[in-house]
Nucleic acid binder design. Structure first.
Length: 260
DNA sequence: ACTTGTTTACTGATCT
DNA sequence: AGATCAGTAAACAAGT
């Protein structure tokens, strides 16, 4: 069966839930996190059906983002001003989809109260750190910015402990072994029709559609460190470097360049 | 004013 | 039948 594409769905409603569509969008981004407007754009670019009635489905999608614990709202970086936060997938939400299929969820992803509180506390700390960082940059006197205590990625990914004491080098970060998702989290795989359990992916003889070509540009995710942990780690590292640089500009190297 | 985010409520479909 | 999931509407708050 040919892989569904922009062409094959046409104006028909794709068989994916809003959660699946949002997960696809997030996973298609290099940093595995996107602002709401980019999630909208991903969906309307690939699925013409969603170019109509935008108010309706976008309201539903926002409802899903807020309502489901599988989506985590990450405060915007201070050096990337703009409206709204970034959204990412909770690493434990990997197993949410049965057999890796985006067509049907195994069960709702629900964080326990304590986990949720911890996460919210860390995100709040990050947000307040950002505010203090911006205030300092603007030259306003402010109380010392409370660093987010234990890094998000340590909290979210306990197997990463102990937290590195030095700033992590993003390019050489160690990917820790974890059970691989049963289906590769590439856009191709995500858009592939549900295949029978245990059957290998059929060979693709179809010429690639324009959409598929674009999708192939998305880097394949072959490691299994959680994307959220990865994004948070990178973000946190950049933040710390930028902060250190602002405080001691003649001593420390310049902040890392923003990732593409 | 508009966008983003949260919450509640309801309905229908599907699963157990 | 009851539980769970998904979709939708709507009200409201907050931020830009």
């Amino acid at each position: 069966m040919p892989r569904p594409s922009r062409e094959s769905y046409g104006d028909q409603k794709p068989p994916y839930s809003y959660i699946s569509l949002t997960a696809m969008a997030i996973w298609s981004s290099p940093e595995r996190m996107l602002p709401l407007s980019e999630i909208y754009r991903f969906i309307t670019d690939r699925f013409p059906y969603y170019r109509r009635n935008t108010q309706r489905w976008q309201n539903s999608l926002r409802h899903n983002l807020s309502f489901n614990d599988c989506f985590v709202k990450v405060p915007r970086r201070p050096d990337r001003p703009g409206k709204g936060a970034y959204w990412t997938l909770h690493p434990q939400a990997f197993d949410m989809f049965e057999n890796g299929s985006l067509l049907r969820r195994r069960k709702r992803f629900k964080l326990q109260k304590g986990e949720k509180d911890n996460l919210n506390a860390e995100l709040a700390a990050l947000a307040s750190f950002n505010r203090a960082f911006l205030a300092r940059q603007a030259g306003a006197p402010s109380a010392p910015a409370p660093m987010p205590s234990a890094s998000l990625y340590t909290r979210m990914c306990p197997q990463l402990s102990p937290e590195p004491t030095e700033l992590p080098e993003v390019a050489t970060m160690t990917m820790l072994p974890r059970e691989r998702p049963r289906r590769a989290f590439t856009i191709d795989a995500l858009l592939e029709p549900d295949s029978p359990r245990l059957s290998p992916s059929p060979p693709q003889h179809q010429p690639m559609s324009q959409a598929s070509v674009a999708m192939h540009m998305v880097p394949r995710l072959e490691f299994s460190l959680s994307p959220y942990a990865l994004a948070a780690q990178r973000y946190h590292a950049e933040l710390l470097q930028a902060a250190a640089h602002a405080l001691r500009p003649c001593y420390l190297p310049p902040p890392l360049l923003p990732v593409a």
